[in-house]
Simulated assay, not measured.
Amino acid sequence: MSVVDLFTPRDSSTGFSLLTVCTGNICRSPLAELYLRRGLADLDDVAVSSAGTMAVDDDVMPDQARALARSFDLEPDAHRARFLFGRDVRSADLALALAREHRRAVVAMHPRASRYTFTLREAARLAHDVSDDEIAEAMPGTGASTAERLRAAVGLLASRRGTVPAADDPIDDDVVDPYRRSDETFVESGRQLVPAADVLVDLLRRAAASPGRVR
């Protein structure tokens, strides 16, 4: 069994579930959900959702958050906040916290989730400069489903913890919370979130398309 296999969190017969998490599920995590869903839309059996550790069910995104989403050509009006439950964490293959406090909350609900939970910016840091050869080496055998390939990519990210240098300042693994703050803070949250999401989408898409190594 490879080190990547050790990090596979769920039954390989199911689709791939990606969960984004923040506090109220009305600013950061819905933007990440919408952006990642679009980036992965053409991959088979991938579901992207979001929830909040202190969310009030059915809250809508504030005007500033909706404007930020629209600036990236996303449609936010249908989003409704959802409180995070342990079952959401247990059913995820990849949980992306928008700040370290959310990662701690996710792992507290389900300690095994430490294997597949990262802050979004941490995941991007771990994914940065991963080569196609490294991805191929991590992939399961011929005939693996897209979900199995994506789970292997999550395992690859987890295996890089401790080998990739940590952020210079731990706060650099967080996306700033813009709630009830200035328009400039909302823009800054987008500047932090979107490039990290782009790096992760690139990794996952390359994993989905990778032929894998000859075994």
Rank of each mutant, 00 (worst) to 15 (best):
D173R: 09
A51N: 00
A32C: 15
R121E: 08
R181K: 15
S17E: 14
E134S: 14
D177L: 10
R112N: 07
L40Q: 04
I135A: 04
D174Q: 13
M61G: 02
S210F: 00
V199D: 15
G212Q: 07
L193Q: 08
R100D: 05
P62N: 01
P165K: 02
A138K: 05
G15P: 13
D58R: 13
F186W: 10
S2R: 12
D88G: 07
M109Q: 12
L74G: 08
D11L: 11
V214Q: 06
V21P: 01
V154C: 00
V107K: 10
D168Q: 11
A197T: 05
V46Q: 03
S182L: 06
S159T: 14
Y35W: 04
D59K: 05
R87P: 04
S49D: 07
R151Y: 02
S159I: 14
D177S: 12
L31G: 08
L96R: 01
D88F: 06
R87S: 15
V89Y: 00
S114Q: 15
S71E: 02
G39R: 07
D198V: 05
C27D: 07
S159W: 11
T146H: 06
D202I: 00
V214T: 00
R37K: 15
I26V: 15
P9I: 11
G86H: 06
T23C: 05
L74I: 12
S71K: 04
Y179L: 12
V176E: 10
P195S: 07
H110P: 09
E148N: 09
D57N: 14
A124R: 06
E122R: 11
G190D: 05
S145C: 08
A97S: 01
F7M: 10
A108V: 06
Y116H: 13
E148V: 08
R100F: 01
A167K: 07
S182I: 05
V194D: 07
R37L: 13
A208I: 09
A152C: 03
H102E: 05
T23F: 07
A113H: 02
D183A: 14
A208P: 00
A99N: 03
S71I: 00
A136V: 03
P178G: 14
G162W: 02
A144H: 01
G162L: 10
H79V: 12
R80A: 14
S145Q: 01
L200Y: 02
L74A: 06
D129Y: 03
V175R: 03
V201H: 07
T142D: 14
M139V: 10
V154Y: 04
T117I: 01
V60P: 03
D63C: 02
F72T: 02
S50C: 07
V107I: 13
R213S: 13
S114I: 14
A167P: 11
S2P: 13
T23A: 13
A99L: 00
R151V: 08
A127C: 12
A113V: 10
L94K: 06
G190V: 00
D174H: 15
A41S: 13
D5F: 04
D58L: 13
A81H: 04
V214K: 10
